[in-house]
Every structure is written in C-alpha cells, then in structure tokens.
Design a protein around this nucleic acid. Sequence first.
RNA 1: GGUCGGUUAACCGAGUGGCUAGGUAGCGGUCUGCAAAACCGUUUACGGCGGUUCGAAUCCGCCACCGACCUCCA
Length: 490
Amino acid sequence: MQNNLFIYNSLSKKKELFKPLHPPFVGLYVCGPTVYSSAHLGHARGAIIFDLLNRYLLHLGYKVRYVRNITDVGHLEDENAGEGEDRIAKKARQEQLEPMEVVQKYLNTYHKNLEQLNTLPPSIEPRASGHIIEQQELIKEILEKGFAYVVNGSVYFDVLKYNEKYKYGKLSGRILEDLQSSTRTLEGHDEKRNSFDFALWKKAAPEHIMKWPSPWSIGFPGWHLECSAMSVKYLGDVFDIHGGGLDLLFPHHECEIAQSTAAHGKESVRYWMHNNMITINDQKMARSLGNFITLDQLFSGDHPALKQAYSPMTIRFFILQAHYRSTLDFSNEALLAAEKGLQKLMKAVETLEKLKSSSDASTFDVANLKKKCYEALDDDLNSPILLSHLFDGVKYINSVFEGIGKIDTSTLDALKELYNTFVFDILGLKDESAGESDEKLTGELMKIIIELRQNAKNNKDFPTSDKIRNELNLIGITLKDRKDGVDWER
RNA sequence: GGUCGGUUAACCGAGUGGCUAGGUAGCGGUCUGCAAAACCGUUUACGGCGGUUCGAAUCCGCCACCGACCUCCA
C-alpha cells in the first residue's frame, strides 16, 4: 500500500512522510475528553480533525484502529500539586449524582454531539476506570525499572532519574532546569522529591469517592497514566499516530512519553499530531476560562454571544476551512460566512446530479482537479486548500448548469465521483436539508402553489404572484425562477 | 521570567522568493416584470525598520503588538 501523505510530527517539528509500522494496519490513538461537563466548540475541532484523518486513511485503504479514550477518573484540579478534588467527583457532589452518573450524562451528550457532527465513531473507546488493573501493572513495571518511588501509599514518577537515562522534555522542548526554576514552589510538606515529578498513583483521602485497592494504598491512578496504559494495550508497544489538543502537549503527552519509555525502554509513538485551539476574542476557548460555547448552544442558538443557531455541518465546515495547526477565531461573521459557503458547495453537488452531458468536449480538467485535491490532503491535511480546489469545480459545475461551460459524459462521471469522495467520504459533510416523511407531501403542495403562481404571472397578476413568493419566504421557503421552471428550497 | 507560535485586504482564512488561494461581504454587469440564485468582471493585503537578492509579503536581523504552554483544559 502506498501513500504520499505527509504529516507534521510535533516530536520532530517537521512534516514527515507517513509510513505505517504494519501496513495495511494503522494504529491511531487520540486523547478524548474528561467528561464532567458539556462538549464545546474546541472539543468539536479535535474530534473533526482526527475524524478527517481517520476518514482519509480509510479512503486510502488502510485498516485503522482508532482508539479514543474517555477520562472518567483521576483527573485532579491541580495536577501539578497532585492535590485538589477529582473533577468528576466534584461535579458529582455538586449535582448530587453518583460519579458514574456524571460520566454517563456527559458522555451521552458528547456522543450525541459528535454524531450530529457526522464523525465516525472510534473503533475502541476505553475508559480510565475500566483499566485500573492495566494502569497498576504499568506502575509496577515503572517501579521495577527504578523510575518511580513510593511515599505514604502514593507513587510518583522520578523525572530526574528518568532524565539521566532518557531525555525528558523531547516533545515540549522543555529543559529540566527551567522547569525547576519556573514550577511553582509548594508550601508545606510535599511528598514529591521534585516539583516536576508527577503522580502515578495517589492514596485516597477517606472521603474520596472513587478509589480502588492497590499494592500501595486504596487510591486512584494519576491522569497521565491512562493513555500510556490503554494505548499500549490496544495498539501495541509501538504504534503509529497519537493525537490530541495542543494544550495537552505539556505536561500530559510529555509524561506519557516518559511513562511508556520508562516501562518499555522505547518510545511508543511514531507520529505525534496536535490540533490548535479555537479562540474567541483572540483568547483560547476553554472550560476553565468560562468563555466557551457548547455544541448544544451552537446548534440551538441559545447563547448571548450567538446571533443565530448554526447547524452541525456549518460548524464542521467552519472548522475544515482552517488548517488544524492554526488557531481559529470564533465569530458570528465567520460562522455566517461558513454557512453560506457550505450552502454553495452542497448546492453545487446537487446540481451535479442534474447536469446533462453534451457531445462537446469538456472545458475543465477534472483529472487535474483530482490531483490537486489529493495533494492538498497529502500536505498535512490541508483542508482549506482542498476546499478552495473544490470551489474551483463548483464554479465550473454552475457554469455548465447555466449553459456556459461544456461537459462530456466521462468528465461528468469523474466529477460526480470526485465530489462524492471528497465532500461526503473524506470531509464528512452531509446534506442537512430536513425531514423525509413530510418531504413528499410538501413537494406535492409546492407543485400546486408554483403552478398557481405561474398562472398569476401569465395573467400579469404580479401582486398575487409576489404575495405567494413573499409569504412563502416568511415561512422559510425561497422560490427561484430559472430558465426552465421554478426551483424552491427551504 | 522561560519555551514556542502568530501578526495577510471589511470579516474568516490559505500560500509562495517572481505567476488570481478560497469562502463571506462590497461594487459594476448578464439574466429577471421585480427579486433571489447563478454567471462574467472588479476594489480594499501581506505589523514596523533594516539587510540578502535582478526581484521578498515569502529568507535573515532588530523592534512592536498578540497568543499558547510553563495548574487544569480539545
């Protein structure tokens, strides 16, 4: 199996040709959310970007095992200090729910939102709480290799010791001395030997809700541990791609590298990919900053910052219009522009189905367009360039429809295949035009109304024909007079 | 303070050492009874100052501003 896909590897900071370890199989691991509140626009970006990658790899013929974890335990509010409450436990207390109820509640909306956004589900969606044994086994391995120490029933990773044998900070470019001086100094008695050491296992306080027995104490695993344990379990000691948000690069992914390397003596991940953040007013959208807009709010328009509702496909298109390694700024104007752009694209795809080929030679080079589309994706998933090429084709499709351009049969077939492949299969866009059961009836009714309006027009009764058009407009139906008949849409 | 990244026209957003990115909005035209859609044409750019070069928005240096990470965050 051959491909020409170059992806930017955060580890080497270069675009590298993607060569899977065991073709045709590809192992893809992506960090999923901690499920203690609703998913927002930022979560959508990560999900959509790695969905694009997954879809493209599938299109290229790979058998992708796509693993995306769910963090449902062990994620503390103050990870560095190893203190503070577990996020999920806190929410559980606030909402008077079982921790697993909190998890289920937000996991359900996460799944619903991602389905609305037309992302393909991962092959495996492991949860941290379901892999306590695996995490404990990993801790044991790290302890045996001498890269961790036990204090009062908690286990910490010994970064200094690790750094002697392997280099710590490869991914983030961080240097230990810098960390030592810049990491916040902790008051009182810290169990850690160094401030940059991190917890592998934490002894639970008596009031702590989520806890498990272990050789060291009744407690719970550290946050970074789950990804190391679960990725290796499902994808093997060494696997192809690890993805996640740029904000996870340090410390989360750096710690993951340290854990896996310490345990297995080699690095697990061959390509690290990081998507950039969504910004709002030039600031990162984040739960902790309180400036986020949830996906449900976007879809319903129910948020003070929103001028209207935006459909899931509008959101998807908006995200695909920017390169995944750039920040993307949220605004109503940008979203509105995306909505219009998407409409234009989807309408052209519909138009394509109505096109009639002629015996004249085509005035457009589809093979060249196809080549450019692949080149765009191969260049580190450059979806904005891909879209710009697809819009070149849109212009041509419309010009043929208007009788300006010419198209022959083979070109028409090639163009249909190209748009089906790239728009639906790879970019994962879909037609959102509503309702099926009522659709037929509406179509029949519209036929009658259009005929009545035509009669009025024939009789030069324009007040009547205008009234029909305007009133239809009010209920969201737009009429369009074309050369050979009347189109309508809502 | 340390590390990294960004600054592109009205807005969003690609990209490249010399050739129109694209979408949205605007303007002029075709079409239309009018409008919408579509098509054709078109106006605003590459933060500032130097340098390298025949040529730089694109490479280098300095400066300014903005952001991310260094707690948790997709």
